[in-house]
């Protein structure tokens, strides 16, 4: 390709775009180490807020809640979603189009509507909101994403590969475990990562479906911010950023490794 000449306007544009994207994050990280309680001037470096955050039992409880909900709901979503995608790929049946299209509804409808809908549903069947209703709700909105990513992975591959496995003596289960699953694994992993991320930072649906003892971290932070942004919230946010980046890098590494293997 031809080497681009230096264009000041494009550079300015790019700088502004990146500043807009990353400055807020940098501010949060910087102020998490600030000795001052107010997020206006940087007065000195300290780990005080991190220590305070760790001593805040409520905050830690909501952190555990978030992790439990995220991992359990992701596991369920991945299981149901993968089976759903494989089924939709493999079989022809009546109303298939309707069933496959209806998977998009949880993705497109406003989260608020979904949250209210779930709340009404749980109360109409007399189920009190708790960590279980929270998990079910998270599965509801994250499962379609798993189905979509897995389906796009399956759509590309040759049906005769599964037939070859059958031909060589493998039954349905063995064909799935030894051939189908390894081949769709990159799709399953990225679907799972998507579900995990969605669950980790969900506020709206959780707001309606979490029980009194199952407050998640995003909900907790939202509550704390009402009284002003304190430095321990900054510290917590910084940890979350680090955690998210770590998960992202990890999942990218896994996927790249798998795709390299699958060719």
């Amino acid at each position: 390709m031809k080497k681009r000449e230096f264009k000041p306007l494009s550079v300015l544009y790019a700088c502004l775009a990146y500043t807009f994207l990353y400055l807020p994050i940098i501010v949060v990280i910087v102020f998490s180490f600030n000795t001052s309680k107010r997020n206006i001037t940087f007065e000195g470096f300290t780990f005080e807020w991190y220590a305070e955050m760790l001593e805040n039992e409520q905050l830690m409880q909501s952190f555990y809640n978030t992790l439990i909900v995220a991992f359990v709901s992701t596991a369920i979503s991945v299981f149901i979603g993968t089976l759903c995608a494989v089924g939709l790929h493999r079989f022809e049946f009546k109303l298939k189009q309707l069933i496959s299209d209806s998977l998009y509804i949880p993705i497109v409808i406003p989260e608020l509507v979904m949250g209210i809908g779930l709340l009404v549903f749980f109360s109409s069947i007399n189920v009190e909101t708790s960590i279980y209703t929270l998990i079910i709700s998270h599965v509801t909105f994250s499962m379609p994403f798993v189905v979509i990513t897995v389906r796009s992975r399956i759509a590309g591959f040759d049906k005769s590969i599964e037939e070859a496995a059958r031909d060589l003596g493998a039954n349905e289960l063995s064909t799935f475990m030894r051939v189908t699953l390894p081949m769709i694994a990159p799709g399953v992993v990225s679907g799972g990562m998507l579900a995990l991320t969605l669950s980790l930072d969900d506020v709206v649906v959780s707001y309606f479906t979490a029980g009194p003892d199952s407050t998640t971290l995003p909900l907790k932070i939202l509550g704390m911010v009402k009284k002003g942004v304190s430095p321990d919230v900054n510290a917590l946010s910084t940890l979350m950023i680090v955690g998210t980046i770590a998960v992202m890098v990890f999942s990218q590494l896994i996927q790249r490794k798998m795709e390299k293997k699958n060719g």
Binding site: D158, S160, I161, E163, A164, A165, G169, K261, N262
Partner: peptide
């Protein structure tokens, strides 16, 4: 079923298992 018949197939586009090496492909059956 196909896995219960004493015949084997060589497919048009080979249909090798992309995630297995040559040895594992051959030993699959």
């Amino acid at each position: 079923k196909p896995n219960e018949r004493d015949v084997n197939t060589v497919f048009q586009n080979y249909a090798l298992f992309p995630h297995m090496n040559v040895r594992d492909n051959i030993s699959f059956g």
